[in-house]
Design a protein around this nucleic acid. Sequence first.
DNA 1: ATGGCGTACACCGTACGA
Length: 271
Amino acid sequence: MLLATWNVNSVRARLDHVLRYWERRRPDVLCLQEIKAEDPAFPREPFEDRGLHLAVAGQKGYHGVAVVSSLPLEAPVVGFPHLPPGHPLNRERRLLAVTAAGVRVLSVYVPNGEAVGSEKFAFKLRFFGELGSYLNRQIEQTPAVVVAGDFNVAPEARDVYDPEAWEGRVLFSPPERAAFEGLKAHGLVDCLRRFHPEGARYTWWDYRGGAFWKNEGLRIDHILATPALAERCEECDVDLSPRRWKRPSDHAPVWARFRFGPADRPRRGNT
DNA sequence: ATGGCGTACACCGTACGA
């Protein structure tokens, strides 16, 4: 299974990029973040014409996540199911769970946090805490869980082009790093770091100041997998080329390949 | 260096992002 994740910064503005990327990388599952469209405004036809399956959790104007897949998508769940729909953490469409080939896949767009100490920052930390509780429940139900998306946290100094300048700022502050590590402590492995221990493997570059061309980036998009699945991860990397295309998203896609054949799928039913 | 970009929605600018 090849799984990719990409914050596209509007699926309508980036539709040609998404389709072009699909043709190039040919993932089985593509998690999208920041689709910035309500469900009816999602451009379904180009995907359905290609025989692809879709799960969409969108809202007007902001945020919104989706999953595109060549595999049938089962049991879609939007948001945190253990919280009421009107709960603040469920009012913004930032989380979508689906099952593809027996793997529970979560497409997540963690709040940005605005500034350390702000109300939005506290909201971001609460989101992390709740995601951890949700994961506990998911892992009990299936051993194969992937959480893929824009976590808006650079976990370590090697994930930041200028860690001294970024230290303590939003995206690279100690509370956010602790929240990210806390999430991993529920039993998740950062797939990229299994293969690439070096720094300068970023996934986001500011539009301003030609940051990408100077590789002044941060690694804030991640693919986290439960150990049973992470052991089967054969490769994980960042695709830089879409960031060079005309009118790009400010994020690059991340992908991971799992050695995961039909025989490895969790058994359905008992015994 | 709080902005130099970019998107959506709506208004001719504002909110938001990271």
